[in-house]
């Protein structure tokens, strides 16, 4: 049995502004085992980034609030981590890669500084010469010539910048990498290169990864497990085979797949199912998907569906009344 690395239990996150309360994440449950890659898929506004920021404890000050739930890292609840503890975790045990490499790097600091900084923070016993050598190694690892380390981010192309971002994220060989749409801002050809690099590195370093994406093609290529997120909840989750081969699916997932005629083709932003995501400031009753669901029943409008396992191994779960035993 694989060892549990990250376990999110009943996570509820809201953004409280003067005008409204946005329910971005609602009772989210997720497990990632050591070394495993979980794909988190969902439409824009589903709460994917919010979930990742909650793990990093990087939710916007004052507005972004974890209302309820637990985030366990190796069985330690990190939702209650102190300011100092969370700094020890960040960049060291958990790293995050953000969506846009163009803006993720500091324009006034050299690439070397930005990589060495994270090492110096977490590997306190490293001497200066060692740091410099390690930076060279890391740059080589992500496919960049170490000779360019004294340059500034604006002297690199988009793909190279994302390689630098990956270098920073993996410098301390974290146990968990959160990658928030790491390739959407890049050209298609470069996307493939970056994904390949990430896959290789995570295997080499035995890092677990939460890969946030809109692209089911990417998921099929590099993930072990998939979670489909809708309105801040996981509505279906399973091993890659469960999602791509099983005949049981949540109606929303079916919609996602119908939108892709051929799996080998990459898709852009997903907006496959007719209608819009429910307003996160005013969520519907019952099943959050019922307004858009073609199979909607009476019960769906009033009662929230429970999570059901579709197989005996309990690897594939669906949150939908269609799969209730008494149906």
């Amino acid at each position: 049995m694989a060892e549990r690395l990250l376990e999110i239990k009943d996570l509820n996150v809201v953004y409280e502004t003067d005008e409204s309360v946005v329910h971005a994440v609602n009772n989210l449950n997720l497990v990632i085992n050591k070394g495993e890659t979980l794909g988190l898929v969902g439409e824009t506004g589903a709460g994917k980034t919010t979930a990742a920021l909650s793990i990093m404890k990087l939710l916007p000050d004052k507005t972004g609030i974890i209302k309820r739930g637990e985030i366990g890292l190796e069985n330690i609840n990190i939702t209650i981590a102190t300011k100092y503890d969370k700094r020890l975790l960040r960049g060291n045990v958990i790293s995050m890669i953000f969506q846009d490499p163009m803006t993720s790097l500091n324009p006034t600091l050299t690439v070397e500084y930005q990589i060495a900084e994270v090492l110096a923070l977490h590997k306190k016993d490293m001497k200066k010469a060692e740091l410099s050598k390690r930076v060279d190694e890391i740059l080589e690892m992500v496919g960049l010539p170490p000779s360019r380390k004294h340059e500034y981010p604006h002297q690199f192309s988009g793909g190279m910048k994302q390689r630098v971002v990956i270098a920073i994220a993996l410098a301390c060989e974290p146990k968990l990498l959160l990658a928030d749409e790491p390739t959407t801002a890049l050209d298609v050809t470069i996307q493939a290169q970056i994904l390949k690099l990430m896959k290789e590195l995570k295997e080499k370093l035995d890092t677990a990864m939460l890969l946030i994406t809109h692209d089911l093609g990417v998921v099929a290529e590099i993930c072990d497990k998939v979670a489909i997120m809708y309105a801040g909840q996981i509505i279906e989750q399973g091993m890659i085979e469960d999602i791509f081969e099983s005949k049981y699916h949540h109606p929303y997932t079916e919609g996602l797949f119908d939108a892709i005629p051929d799996l080998s083709k990459k898709t852009k932003r997903l907006n496959p199912v007719e209608g819009l995501m429910p307003d996160p400031t005013d969520l519907p009753t019952g099943c959050f998907f019922h307004v858009r669901c073609r199979k909607c029943m009476d019960i769906c409008k009033t009662k929230e569906p429970e999570i059901k396992w579709t197989n005996a191994d309990k690897t594939h779960l669906i949150k939908c009344h269609l799969f209730n035993d008494n149906k």
């Binding site: 803006t103 993720s104 971002v165």
Partner: peptide, 14 residues
């Protein structure tokens, strides 16, 4: 508000 400040925080910078 810039992204690179978030990156710095995500590295564990105080």
């Amino acid at each position: 508000r810039q992204d690179y400040i978030r990156t710095a925080r995500s590295k564990g910078v105080g």
